[in-house]
Design a protein around this nucleic acid. Structure first.
Lengths: 333, 333
DNA sequence: TTGTAAGCGTTATCAA
DNA sequence: TTGATAACGCTTACAA
């Protein structure tokens, strides 16, 4: 490995001068600086980031810990965050907790150990433990899902979006829309259910019962939930599904039963995805500004990095609006 | 920050003993080890991975640098790699090069600087520069796309898969299947085109011309390519598309023209995705064993990590078979 | 079995 | 403006 020492020897200067030259410090003579840069290039020197981090007690790395890498929502968030990061000289490393609290804890630990300078987290549970990061003063931004701890958060108005979606189904004339939501431990799942319930209550003083199922945000469990609902005593005639991945499971079950969305049943999914316009009946969705959320999270991080603990602003929460995109699957006939 | 020194003081031992105890070395007295562990837990000590890496000249981190995070193929690869890594005590950090050679170079540099102990890369170009990693003895595995340098590789039999897909279209009675492939710089794009050409040549001694377009593996460019083909003098009656993301662009263009796959045109995409069974006519695809590829890449990495340079095996290439999954979009009528 | 101390590669302080 | 040197937190000879 070529170290700063080798460069110093080659350029005939001290290691201190090399360090200063390579970090573009103004106090170094232009000629010397050139000589150093030439020597570094010739030797193929690359700064050892580990040593640098140890000395500086910080890195130029942010961690983005997401709960499902296969979910296009999170990949769009990642893009947004990364664009802000790159612009400011940070790198983003992505960690996939896979909806598994143990994996999430592992990656939070990695973030501490590797001294990342900021963490964006979509917590699996509102109770996820970020105390260690907080104690070290590493800024944390919760994204998509709320955290019990008071930290900066970028959320969507889930309840409002869910309410709008459910109201839309009712307006279309569907009588018994069911709700398939995520796990009870996820704040978003609860909020989307709340929105659904609000719309149902607003539409009728005695809303139908037993039309709610908790799945785990995964396709197959959502398919089972749909089957269970359809086999019930008073089956639903429409579905509000709390994310697009679960919509795939529901679509499979409906196809299996030869029920066509937009004709035999109504269907709206929370969360857009690239494929949603191309299902047999294009899918009506509640779109989230995922990319913007990533950008916003990055900005919140930047606001805190390098700011002393006593000058940190209080925790801020940004709640972004969703947009109902009506396509075919929610219409009647 | 709580350091090993604080733990030593609290436990009344030396830092060396703390280090040994926390690394489960056999040579340390059981009682003492317990005392150390208790002290560490009470103080909330976490080992500083940066300092450790500097001393050991290695980390427990692998980098996976992929060319498109929104592509489900790569997310499945990531899952496979991660499962192997976790099992062996490594963490995987994901970097998204976004089909941009500059970003890729940036992340390769980050990998060097941060001293990751292994890199899995889906190169944007066959000429991607990994020389620095090689010089340092950091094992590299190329995945999905070949690299000019001799490194371990996990590829699929792209040409064979493409040939099978195209032959299937021809067998179904489509006369003029077009090929929309990826950028010329990507090895996979070239191979898939080769397979297409092979099938066309095998089927007819004078295969139709001007039916090939290079897009960049992105949906919108593929849509434009489809439009261009359909507006040509002798338009195609079927499409072989080199990945599933581009299939979305083609689907959009077809819908725009009210052409239904499986009735008015034939359509096969290389690369499966979760949504492919749910398009208006379920999409026929060439499925790749993405998860297994990730697992394999991890195993190849493990074979080299910690092995001295002179004991390293020669570069190995694994070529995995694809599977043609016939659904509706390639059928006729 | 335990402790002392050197050293990983860098940056920052201080003196020249 | 430059150089010598200490320090970041850890692991590991080597000594006791």
């Amino acid at each position: 490995m070529v170290t700063i020492k080798d460069v110093a020897a080659a350029a005939g200067v001290s290691v201190a001068t090399v360090s200063r030259a390579l970090n573009n410090q103004a106090t170094v003579d232009a000629d010397l600086a050139d000589r150093v840069r030439v020597a570094a290039a010739e030797l193929g020197y690359r700064r050892n980031g580990v040593a640098r981090s140890l000395r500086l007690q910080r890195t130029d790395v942010w961690a983005l810990i997401i709960s499902d890498i296969a979910n296009p929502f999170f990949t769009a968030v990642a893009r947004g965050l990364e664009d802000v990061a790159q612009e400011q000289g940070y790198s983003v490393v992505l960690c996939n907790s896979d909806e598994d609290p143990a994996k999430e804890a592992r990656y939070l630990d990695v973030a501490v150990r590797e001294q990342v300078s900021g963490v964006v987290l979509s917590p699996n549970e509102v109770s996820s433990d970020i105390s260690h990061l907080q104690r070290l003063g590493v800024p944390v931004v919760a994204i998509d899902r709320p955290l019990r701890e008071p930290v900066d958060s970028v959320l969507v108005r889930s309840a409002a979006g869910a309410e709008e979606a459910t109201a839309h189904l009712l307006e279309q004339g569907w009588r018994r829309p069911a709700c398939i939501t995520g796990p009870e431990s996820a704040g978003t799942a609860v909020q989307r259910l709340t929105g659904y319930r609000r719309a149902m209550a607003a539409h009728s003083s005695r809303p139908p019962k037993n039309l709610v199922r908790y799945a785990d945000y995964r396709a197959d469990r959502a398919g089972e939930a749909a089957a269970d609902l359809l086999d019930g005593r008073y089956p639903p005639d429409a579905f509000f599904v709390a994310n697009s991945e679960m919509a795939l499971g529901v679509l499979e079950e409906l196809r299996h039963r030869q029920l066509l969305p937009g004709r035999d049943v109504g269907l709206v999914a929370f969360d857009d995805a690239p494929w949603t316009p191309f299902t047999e009946r294009p899918l009506t969705v509640v779109a989230q500004p995922a990319y913007e959320m990533g950008v916003l999270a990055g900005r919140l991080l930047l606001d805190r990095i390098g700011v002393p603990l006593d000058a940190q602003p209080p925790a801020r929460t940004r709640r972004l609006r969703t947009e109902l995109v009506v396509r075919g699957s929610s219409l009647r006939g």
